[in-house]
Amino acid sequence: MGMRLVLKRWRVALAALAITLPLGFAFPAAGEKAVGMLGINIATVMGILPPVFILLGLFDTWVPRERVAPHLGEGSGLKGVALALFLGSASAGPLYVAFPVAEVLLRKGASVRNIFIFIGAWSTMRAPMFLFELQNMGFAFGLSRYAASFVGVLAMAWLTDRFLGEEDRRLMLAGSGDKV
């Protein structure tokens, strides 16, 4: 791999470093704490991701496109919407796990709209989180937020699907990595 390609691949990490380093030096106490937090965060993320990627690798090789596309693809209609909502809200775990899952589903033929419904539901409609919210915030707060989020997830997924052009779709389906 050439130097330029390496730089291109890592430029997002370098950009993050260019943001965090000056902040760390400007606020030394926070900078020192951030170094400690970095260790904890690396341990957490690296603890979760290996089995996620292995399961996605298995899913990718064993489950053929024909098993996914009819249920979540362009022609899946309301059933596809409902399934995407269910899969997203039945999940547990942080949002950064949803992205690789969504990408594999997308490559297996799920529609862009359903993928963004899935990500939206994962982010804000997770069932365990909602129960915890009701407990803490009460029914008026929890139910109204959930209802508003439900409408928003559907609307935003529909709009995202509308706004993304052919080029964006091609990039999304090209597989991860080289677009960074």
Partner: peptide, 10 residues
């Protein structure tokens, strides 16, 4: 990871 860590610290 870098961004999250500095945000939590700040």
């Amino acid at each position: 990871l870098l961004l999250v860590s500095i945000m939590i610290a700040l």
